[in-house]
Every structure is written in structure tokens, then in C-alpha cells.
């Protein structure tokens, strides 16, 4: 039984209205865009300090098809960028400040938040880490294997694709919108409660 379902239907204590899948997807895209920008900026800095991760073989009138990939620098870029991604998502979800449930900037824009099931408390650091691993782990792994172990990337990519399909299907089928990543990490994505602001009507 999906534990979030009962509460979503109106349990006795706090009422959680789970967020619609389309909004969640859009929020994720906003986050990904933001994070990609940050990652790109850091990669430029890395390029300037330790040298380029990809260089071009000098070919006369080269058509641009001669690439040289420096694996050590790619590895460094991967570690840095995965750390950035982990910091961004885990930090956003496990943050404890104020009365509101925490959310990433993208989720905040779409007025949704991540919380623990059965209550209106934020998820713990361990839960946030598990949620990030389940969501972003496969894509990060694929990106790394694409460079360091090209032979293994195909099966991993197929497995990742299958995993994301499972997440999508389980999210869509769950009455509380809780895909496997939410169930394993004990989280739920809810609509942010509207608060009366200073200028609002009573």
C-alpha cells in the first residue's frame, strides 16, 4: 500500500495535496537548466586552471572530427559536477529554515515542495541523499561511463532508460504521485501551502 495515499486523500492530521506530475517535471527542467549553467561555469573555470578536458587534433582544414579526450580531467570534471549537483538537490531538499517545507529553486517557482510522508516535516539528509541517488545517480553514472568505459555505457544506458520509465510509470500510477524514488526515500512532493502575506486580503 502506498503510505502517502491515505494522507493525500485526507488523513486526520496535516492535509497534503500532492503536486501534479507535469508541474514536477517542469520544475525539474528549471532546476536542470540552472544547474547546467552552474556546471558549465565551473567547467570553464576548470578548463582555465587545469587545461581542457577535450582538445582537437590539429588537422589541416580539419572538419572537426579529430577529438582527444583527457580522461583524468574528465574524471575531475565529473567529480566536481556531481558534487555540485548533489549539493544543489540534497541541500535544497534537506534544508531546515522557516515554517515551509524545503524545495529547490525550480520547485519553488512551481510552488511545490518536498516533505516527509505522514507529516509536514522536511526530509532528513539521509532521505535527501537517497532521493538524489535514485533520481540523478543513473544519469551521472552514464555520463561518466560514456567517457571512461565506453564499452559498458550501452547496457547501463538501457538500464537507466528502463529505470526512468519505471519512475515515470510508478509516479503516474500512484494516487499520491509517489514514484519508486519517493517510496524508497520516504518522501512526497506536495503543493506549497499558500500563506497570507502582508498585503493580502484576509
Amino acid at each position: 500500500m502506498d503510505p502517502g495515499a491515505e494522507t493525500a486523500r485526507g488523513g486526520r492530521k496535516p492535509v497534503e495535496i500532492h503536486a501534479a506530475p507535469l508541474g514536477r517535471l517542469f520544475a525539474f527542467l528549471v532546476d536542470a537548466l540552472l544547474l547546467t549553467g552552474v556546471v558549465f561555469a565551473f567547467s570553464m573555470a576548470l578548463d582555465a586552471t587545469v587545461g581542457p578536458a577535450v582538445s582537437f587534433r590539429a588537422e589541416e582544414g580539419g572538419a572537426g572530427n579529430g577529438f582527444m579526450i583527457h580522461r583524468d580531467r574528465v574524471m575531475l570534471a565529473w567529480i566536481l559536477n556531481v558534487a555540485l549537483g548533489a549539493g544543489y538537490f540534497i541541500g535544497s531538499w534537506a534544508r531546515r529554515s522557516g515554517r515551509d517545507l524545503p524545495s529547490t529553486p525550480g520547485q519553488r517557482l512551481l510552488r511545490i515542495a518536498v516533505g516527509r510522508t505522514g507529516g509536514s516535516r522536511p526530509i532528513t539528509l539521509a532521505q535527501a541523499t537517497a532521493r538524489w541517488l535514485l533520481l540523478m545517480g543513473p544519469v551521472s553514472l552514464c555520463a561518466l561511463l560514456g567517457i571512461v568505459a565506453p564499452a559498458s555505457r550501452a547496457p547501463v544506458a538501457l538500464a537507466s532508460l528502463a529505470w526512468y520509465l519505471i519512475l515515470l510509470v510508478t509516479t503516474l500510477r500512484s494516487p499520491a504521485g509517489r514514484g519508486l524514488h519517493d517510496r524508497f526515500s520516504g518522501s512526497i512532493v506536495t503543493v506549497r501551502a499558500r500563506r497570507a502575506g502582508p498585503g493580502s486580503s484576509p
Partner: peptide, 29 residues
């Protein structure tokens, strides 16, 4: 066929920044 398709679908990753959630090429590219 599946193996080849998977290979094809992932071939573009060779020039992407690993770890970026969206496809973003290396600055040098």
C-alpha cells in the same frame, strides 16, 4: 539491434560534461 541502438543513443555523451543534468558540451567544444 537493441545493443546497437543503445550504443547509438549514448554516443553523443562523449562530448558532454559528465554530471550535467542536461546535455551541455565541454567549454572547449
Amino acid at each position: 539491434h537493441l545493443a546497437r541502438v543503445a550504443e547509438d543513443l549514448t554516443s553523443w555523451q562523449a562530448l558532454l560534461i559528465p554530471g550535467a543534468p542536461l546535455p551541455a558540451p565541454f567549454p572547449e567544444v
